[in-house]
Design a protein around this nucleic acid. Structure first.
Lengths: 120, 120
DNA sequence: AGCAACCATAGACTATACTCTAATGTTGTT
DNA sequence: AACAACATTAGAGTATAGTCTATGGTTGCT
C-alpha cells in the first residue's frame, strides 16, 4: 500500500509517518519494476510497527527507545542475548513506572480524603 | 532560604527552578524590609512543591498538568468541588497509564518467551 | 487534454521543557 | 578595597517530537 492508505489504516498522519521513517522506526520500499514514479510501498509489518509505536509512545517511550524495541523485535541480525538485554531493560523500566504511578496514586488518594475531611 | 540553597536541598538546578517559577509552579517572595537587594526567598512549602514536581514529572505529567495539581493542592481559593474534579481526573489518567503499562508489559513478556523458544 | 488527488523532498515552523549566556548588581570574607 | 560567590533579568540555544509549506512530479478519471 502507499502512504495515504497506511495513514488511513493506522490513523497516523502522512507527515508523522514520514517523520517516523526518517527517524528509522519504519521503512517503505520502492518497486524496482516501476520506473515512472518513486513511490514507496508499505506492508502489514509496517502497520504492526506503527501500532507498536503508538502504544509505546502512549506509555512515555521516546523515539529512540522505541527504535531499540523495534530493532529487538524485527532485526534478524541481532543476537538472542542482545534482544533479551533490550527487552529486559524495557520491562524493568515499565515496572519502575508502574511503581511510581502507584505511589502517586496513593498520595493523591490520601490527599483526596484529607480535603474531603476539610484537613486541607 | 535563597535559590542556591533551595537548589542544593532539592537537587534541582537554579536554572530549572527559575523556569518552574516563571511557569507558575512555585513562587518565592521578597522581603519588604530588605532594601539593598531584590533577592527572592523560598520556604519549605516550595521544597515540598519541587519534590511533587519531580515525582509528577517522572510519571509523565506535563508542566501544565502539574500546575493544575499544585493549584488543587495549595490554592485555598479553589472550591472543594474544583479540587476534587482535578484530582479525580488525575487519578483516572494514572489508572489509564497503569493499564497501558501493564498491557505493554504483557506484550513484551510474550515476545520474550517467543524469542527464547526461537519463534522469532 | 484537463484536473483533482496523490506522491516525493527539503526545509521552515511549533510546542514543550529545559539549559545556558550575558550583563549587572550584592554579599561576605580576607 | 578586593574578590569570590552569590543574586537578578532578558534573552539565546538545545533536544524532542512532531506539523506544515513549497515545489514539482505522477496517476487516474472524465
Amino acid at each position: 500500500m502507499l502512504i495515504n492508505e497506511l495513514a488511513k489504516k493506522t490513523g497516523i498522519s502522512v507527515h508523522t509517518i514520514r517523520f517516523y521513517e526518517k527517524s528509522g522506526l519504519i521503512s517503505g520500499h520502492r518497486d524496482p519494476m516501476v520506473k515512472s514514479n518513486n513511490y514507496f510501498h508499505y506492508d502489514d509489518v509496517v502497520v504492526e510497527k506503527l501500532e507498536l509505536i503508538r502504544d509505546a509512545k502512549s506509555i512515555g517511550f521516546t523515539i529512540s527507545e522505541i527504535a531499540q524495541l523495534i530493532e529487538a523485535w524485527y532485526d534478524e541480525q541481532l543476537s538472542l542475548d542482545e534482544k533479551l538485554k533490550v527487552l529486559d531493560a524495557k520491562l524493568e523500566s515499565i515496572d519502575e513506572k508502574i511503581t511510581q504511578l502507584k505511589a502517586m496514586r496513593k498520595l493523591l488518594k490520601v490527599f483526596r480524603k484529607d480535603i474531603i475531611n476539610g484537613d486541607c
